[in-house]
Amino acid sequence: MTRLQWAAVAAGLALLAAMPWFADKFAVQFASKVLIFALFASSLNLLVGQAGLVSLGHAGFFGVAGYVLALASPEYDAAPLWSTLAMAVGVAALLALAIGALVVRTRGVYFLMATLAFGQMLFHLFHDGDFAGGSDGLQIFARPAGTLFGVALFDLEQYRHFHWVVLAACALVLVFLARLRASPFGRVLDGIRVNEHRMRALGFATVRYKLVAFVLAGALAGLAGYLSACQFGVVNPESLGWHQSGAVLLMVILGGMGSLTGPALGAAVWWGMELFFQGFTRHWQLPMGAVIVAVALFLPDGLAGLWRRVRPPRAVAAEASVREGAA
C-alpha cells in the first residue's frame, strides 16, 4: 500500500474509534456489524484474493465459532471471554484443517463446489441435529466477560466497549494481514494464484501452503463469527449456510480482491445497501440483486477498480513494483 492509502486507513480507524462520542447507538452498532464483516471478508480474501482459492463455504467457520460460544456459555450467565474465544477460534481452525485437507487437492470451480458442499454439510449437521437447538439455533443471554487475571478490562454489554473491542480486533487482523502479504508465505500464495504449476516446479509444496492458508482464513473467520455471536446474542444454522458464504464472497468481490482494504469496503457497501433498500421495500433483495448484476457486468475490478479508473495508476509496472517493493 502507498503512504496515502495507509494515511486513509489510519484516518478511517480514528474516525471509527471516535464514533461512540458523536454517533447514536444504532449507528455505532451498525458500524460494529460492518467491522465484524470486514474482518470476515478479509479472512476470505486471504484465500480468494491472494491464493486464488474461491471458497463458497467460508461461513461454516464463522458460524461454528458462534455455536462454540453459545454451547460453552452457561445459561443466563456470562462466559469467560479468553477461554471461549480460544476455543471458538481453535474449533474453527481444526474444522478448516479437516475440510481443507480434502478440498485443497481440488482446483478452480471444483474447489468452489466442494467448499460449498462442505459448508452445507455443516448447515445440515446443526439444522438437523438436536444438540444445538436445531433450526431455531441457540441464544446467548449474556455477553462474555472480558476479565484478565481477575480484573475487568471492559464490559461487552456496553455497546461502546463492544465497538472498541471489535475495532481493535479488526485493526490487529488488518496489520497482521498486511505483514502476511509481504512475507515469504504471502508471496508463495501470490505465486500459487498466478501460476501454481510453476510454483511446484520451483520446489514449493503448494498443497501444504494452500492448506495453511485455508486454516488461517478459517481461524480468522472464527474470530469474526465469535464477535458476531456476541453482538447478536443468537446463532442459527443460517449463520453457516451458503447464503452467508455467498454474501461474504460478494463483499470481497464487490470491494475488490487485489487490495487489503477492498473487502472492508465491500462489507460496508453491502450492509449500507441493505440498510438503504430495506428503507424502501420489503423486497429489498430485488434492487440489491440488480446492483450485484450491474457490478458483475460493468465493474470487473469491483469498487476498488472504480477508484482506479478515476485515478489511473501511473504505469502498469507501478503496482507490481510497489508490491515487490516494500523492498
Binding site: 509481504a182 515469504p184 508465505f185 508463495v188 501452503y209 515487490e324 516494500a326
Partner: peptide
Amino acid sequence: SMRFLRPASSF
C-alpha cells in the same frame, strides 16, 4: 516459506 511476519524482501 512458512514465515508470516518478516518481509520477504529482507532475506
